[in-house]
Design a protein around this nucleic acid. Structure first.
Lengths: 217, 217
DNA sequence: ATATAAATAAGGGAAATGCCTTAAAAGAGA
DNA sequence: TCTCTTTTAAGGCATTTCCCTTATTTATAT
């Protein structure tokens, strides 16, 4: 397993991120950064020519975003593993990435140890998720069957997640309403439902949940 | 000029950015990354102890943002040059940074060459601005208008920290009052003062501040 | 000694939250 | 088809936050 080098493609539109990751991996004997790409389209093109083992894929990229690129790549090259790489983002995107076939998800503000851990885990066929990502989401990809949630932790709908994100960003109900073109009363209903579902009874709890879920910060 | 090493402090809350820049500068003989800081407050503290030549200062940071930190540092340590480092190229922020006394401004997605150019230019008393930044703004800093800051920068008292901690734990004013044997009105006053001092206007901001400060969670 | 800051307390009012209710339209699934 | 979920919306009401003000006491610092 450690005999062959793990070849990696870094896809990120910020050169400094690419350079940063490259330098973090420079000393590693069993890892080689084989290629770079500045957007999703380029990532696909590079992956076609260069059969890398793992792609560190930024979610937000010009031309073609990381989600769509991941979907195309995992469909066309099942052997290539994709680790999503992003700053804090919404649950919708995380699950989108996982649904697109990503094998892992790490935040950009990671250290070398975590990065290596993620690469090695995924390289060995596993999945890796940043500790910030709630396990409930991770299980979704672990099981091939879509996880139905009859658990005490019932999940939030897309809209509710959206509202929660805005709450976590400090917006009031009326501000959220304006942003989403809704009635303030509707937003209030969503807020109430979110709290009921999560068994949270004030905005402090909501903010903390939003942060823990990677929805904000 | 090239005889003495240029010592640099990197202030950014994302470790990967710090590592990335550090690695970019690693090979340079006349540059040494002398220190790191994860937020504005830390940057000031580090600058006080360690008289660096240049600070690469992220704009968006917890506890104390790059603008305010720059204002304080350039006022207190006129010899230290600050280069703003950020992803945003918003006009308002740029001029704010320049008014705060920054000597340069570069975007995060730069390459090694530009970074070195910026550092050397600023080190020689010049100013450096990413080509993306319009020159009209640059001229504004050329005038050595004394930076005045009526900065909202008084920090919290012991009691205020205590109250903030309870707020971050989800307690209401009356609950905090009960716990601290105070009148709810007193707690409210503390809350108001905390918000005024930190320029925060809702509980969401308070919770985030409390978390970032390590007060809770 | 005297200004400054911290800690205490309160009045008053506008805005927002928290929690209950009902309800209609749209879509998905069994 | 019937049911369940989601999304939308609203009425009403108690509580809480947010922001302004003033004020006393105590400690600290110049």
């Amino acid at each position: 397993m450690a005999s062959k080098k793990i070849s990696i493609l870094i896809a990120d539109d910020h050169q400094i991120i690419v350079d940063g990751i490259r330098s973090l991996l420079e000393g590693e004997k069993n890892i080689i950064v084989a290629a770079e790409a500045g957007n999703g389209k380029e990532a696909i093109a590079v992956a076609e020519k260069n059969p890398v083992d793992i792609i560190l894929m930024d979610v937000e990229m010009p031309l073609l975003n990381g989600c769509d690129a991941t979907a195309i790549i995992t469909a066309r090259f099942p052997k290539i593993k994709v680790i999503a790489l992003t700053t804090y983002d919404e649950k919708a995107i995380i699950s989108k990435m996982l649904n697109a076939g990503a094998s892992g998800y790490i935040l950009k503000n990671i250290n070398k140890k975590i990065l290596l851990e993620a690469i090695n885990t995924v390289s060995n066929g596993g999945t890796y998720f940043s500790s910030e990502i709630p396990i409930v989401l991770a299980t979704k990809s672990a099981e091939t069957t879509p996880v139905k949630h009859d658990s005490p932790l019932s999940f939030l709908s897309t809209r509710e997640v959206e509202v929660l994100k805005h709450i976590g960003n400090g917006l009031s109900n009326s501000e959220i309403a304006e942003k989403l073109f809704l009635s303030p009363k509707t937003v209030e209903t969503h807020r109430t439902n979110i709290m009921r579902k999560l068994n949270i009874h004030n905005v402090v709890g909501l903010v903390k949940y939003a942060i823990k879920s990677g929805l904000v910060d």
